[in-house]
Simulated assay, not measured.
Amino acid sequence: MTANGEMGYESVSTMEPWTQSSDYMSSETEDYEDSGICDKSWVRLFRGSYEPVLYWIIFVVGGVGNLLVVWIYTTVKHRLKTMTDVYLLNLAIADLFFLGTLPFWATDATQGWVFTGVVCKGVSAVYKINFFSSMLLLTCISVDRYIAIVRVTQAHNFKSRRMFYSKLACLVVWLLSCFLSLPEFLFAEVKQGQHNVAFCSLVYPANNNNLTKVLVLCLQISVGFCLPLLVMVACYSVIIRTLMQARSFEKHKALRVILAVVAAFVLSQLPYNSHLIVEAAQAYNTTMTDCEAVKTFDVAGQVVKSLAYTHCCLNPILYAFIGVRFRKDLLQICQCLTRMGGVNKPQAVPKRPSVMSDTDTTPALSL
């Protein structure tokens, strides 16, 4: 999230002409290591002890799930029939690009940044582009579910136009995400830390109260968390009210799906974005000067950041695999693979819409 902070470990004291932000893998608290005031080597050891394994697990699990989504949407004929189909395909692509940056940061956690400065800028920018695109696509999915379930008549009447709008929305999401990632293109640099260990980090120009850094953090929090959360809560609240009025035995399953979607987003993203809010306040007006407090804050940042990364593994389950039609297509492809070389073809499976997948003509709530 599909979401996510800044990497690296260290920050240069505000006494320097440039303010260094720890890049995506760590907090952005002021680090006095360069002046020898606070030795944070144990924070790096903590990061190196678990992040590589965790990131490779997320990389493999999330990669398999999202590749399955892309595979099904690109191999089953005429699969992209609704707005949600378009959003889900783009969401899976965004998650895959995001996951592609994790091996770099897993290596960085144990060896430092062993790649070039160009790779540092590129990986940082790709990460942030796909972070923003994932969050904005989740927002689009929420709006589409509102239209398909609450405004079902209008959705059916303007079905062809909705497909055009979904593709246009995806284009806007990608362009906006590229624009929001400009700080990574401009400020990502390879810096030397203690013991000649290099790291990829954002280095902001020093200005009044680290204004550039504060603005970048506020932008990430607003667009990457607050906006999606507000839209999800607003849309799903109306959807739940509509479902409660429906006389369908499946509505309780649909409600559980919606609650799972919102809970997964909040539980994975809220802790990390709360941490970013504190970081923004710390950058604007440094109040945390005790070395032990800073180190504890950094470790907390590592933990909540790792939690936020798990959302890209949950997206395929929450937004694709729960749909009846998607599961049927997946089963059909698996049957084709197992029968490869045989003469019998798998029988076509009737397709039904699902609350988080397709609703061509009716807001059916089957799972």
Rank of each mutant, 00 (worst) to 15 (best):
E6V: 12
T14S: 13
Q20W: 08
E33P: 06
W42K: 13
G48T: 06
Y50R: 08
P52R: 05
I58K: 07
I58S: 08
G62H: 12
N66E: 11
L68H: 00
V69Y: 03
V69S: 01
V70D: 09
W71R: 12
W71Y: 13
I72F: 00
Y73E: 03
T75I: 01
K77A: 15
Y87V: 07
L91V: 06
A92P: 13
L96W: 10
F98C: 08
L99C: 09
G100T: 06
T101C: 06
P103C: 00
F104Y: 15
A109E: 05
Q111S: 12
W113G: 00
T116M: 03
G117K: 03
K121I: 05
S124Q: 11
A125T: 15
S133I: 00
M135H: 06
L136Q: 06
L137Y: 00
L137E: 04
R145P: 06
A148N: 09
V152K: 10
T153P: 01
M163L: 15
F164Q: 13
S166G: 05
C170K: 04
L175W: 13
C178D: 01
F179P: 04
F185Q: 01
L186K: 14
Q192I: 12
N196Q: 08
N196Y: 02
A198K: 09
S201G: 01
Y204V: 04
N209S: 14
N210A: 07
C218W: 12
L219G: 15
L227C: 06
L230K: 01
Y236M: 02
I239Y: 03
R241G: 03
T242R: 05
L255R: 03
L259R: 10
V262D: 07
A264T: 10
N273Q: 14
L276M: 14
V278N: 11
V278H: 05
A280V: 06
T286E: 13
T287L: 02
E292A: 02
G301I: 05
I317W: 03
Y319R: 05
A320I: 02
G323C: 05
F326R: 00
C334P: 02
T338L: 11
R339S: 13
G341V: 03
V355G: 04
V355F: 03
T359N: 08
T361R: 08
T362V: 10
T362I: 12
